[in-house]
């Protein structure tokens, strides 16, 4: 039996795809994500121009219908490229109904999904990058360095989240806006990436530190050290590859978390500003549209439905990845 960590993982990598495909829930999750993403990306060329096309000349909040309700002319003005493609896309404008400004809900949900997922992925990347480096270094160095680094994490943990986000926002929003050439919209997005990513890495750092603490006692690390390998080499070559499992799992779980946090922050007015859609925003608006007197149910059902399906799919994939990467896991698949 080899004691080399890299071979461990190498073995796992060969079987990963196979294992994931065999895991029914993970496979369903991946398919769902693929379908949602494909739809969103395909509609993007139109969505970018149509997400804020309002139709206020008559009644608004049209119910969902298979045939478009709003005249083609309103959309045609904004469309680029071939008229045929625009015509085809136009047929989708009313499938999910229209909102309180007569905007096509379909062409708001599609970019909203990408915005939300983008924020989720960015947060996951940040959390993984910072958290892994921080946790691994702390654990491997040990002693006083570990103590100081982990106390910093504890302190950041202790700060109220909202306070931190607001501080971050006040500190960097203005210079950032100036740097981005006066585009406050993009500055908002960057602040939100930083806010969510900057907090998500804390848990990641703790998880990784725990793993590395146990790993560095393993004989194969001792062996590597005996051959004269430096700490960076050992971390990179022997420790990290063995951490892929927990890191990937945690990263997939950060994505749905970040999507939810984004909706929360946007609700407070710190996150994505209107009219840029995000799933959280659309859902929050939808809640207000359903009450005892009158119900525009489609404004709640569709954004929430897409949000739920996306989050479920991400969780399935995360779960599947964990099972696939962890040889000890005997957990039964969800589906």
């Amino acid at each position: 039996m080899s004691q080399d960590g890299s071979e461990h993982v190498g073995h796992g990598r060969v079987g990963l795809w196979v294992k994931l495909r065999r895991d029914r829930s993970a496979f369903v999750g991946m398919m769902l994500l693929a379908v949602l993403l494909a739809t969103a990306v395909a509609s993007l060329p139109f969505a970018l121009r149509w997400y804020n096309v309002q139709e206020l000349s008559s009644a608004v909040r049209h119910r969902p219908s298979a045939t478009p309700v709003v005249p083609f002319a309103s959309y045609e003005r904004e469309a680029t490229g071939s008229r045929g493609a625009a015509r085809a896309a136009y047929h989708l404008t009313s499938v999910m109904g229209h909102d309180d400004l007569g905007r096509s809900l379909f062409f708001r949900i599609a970019p909203a999904l990408l915005v939300s997922l983008g924020i989720g992925l960015a947060a996951a990347v940040m959390a993984t990058g910072i958290g892994t480096a921080w946790g691994a270094v702390a654990a491997y160095a040990g002693g006083r360095v570990d103590l100081v680094m982990m106390r910093i994490v504890d302190v950041l943990y202790g700060l109220p989240y909202i306070l931190m986000v607001i501080l971050l926002k006040t500190a960097i929003a203005r210079p950032l806006t100036a740097m981005l050439g006066g585009h406050a919209k993009y500055a908002d997005l960057v602040v939100m990436f930083l806010a969510i990513g900057g907090v998500a890495w804390l848990t990641m750092a703790r998880v990784v530190r725990g793993q590395v603490l146990s790993l560095r006692q393993q004989p194969f690390i001792e062996a590597a050290r005996a051959t004269g390998a430096g700490p960076i080499y050992i971390l990179w070559r022997h420790v990290l590859p063995n951490l892929v499992g927990p890191i990937v799992v945690y990263a997939t779980l950060v994505v749905p978390q970040a999507v939810l946090q984004e909706s929360f922050l946007s609700f407070l007015g710190i996150g994505v500003q209107q009219p840029t859609p995000s799933l959280g925003r659309l859902a929050a608006d939808g809640v207000e549209a359903v009450n005892t007197f009158v119900s525009y149910w489609w404004l709640l059902i569709f954004p929430c439905g897409v949000l739920v399906v996306t989050l479920l799919a991400l969780n399935f994939v995360g779960e599947g990845l964990r099972n696939a990467l962890d040889p000890k896991s005997r957990a039964a698949p969800l589906l």
Binding site: N52, Q54, L56, D100, L101, G269, Q274, P275
Partner: peptide, 13 residues
Amino acid sequence: TPNDERVCQAVAR
């Protein structure tokens, strides 16, 4: 403020 969301989005457009 949040209460004016709809009017302001319409006017901005």
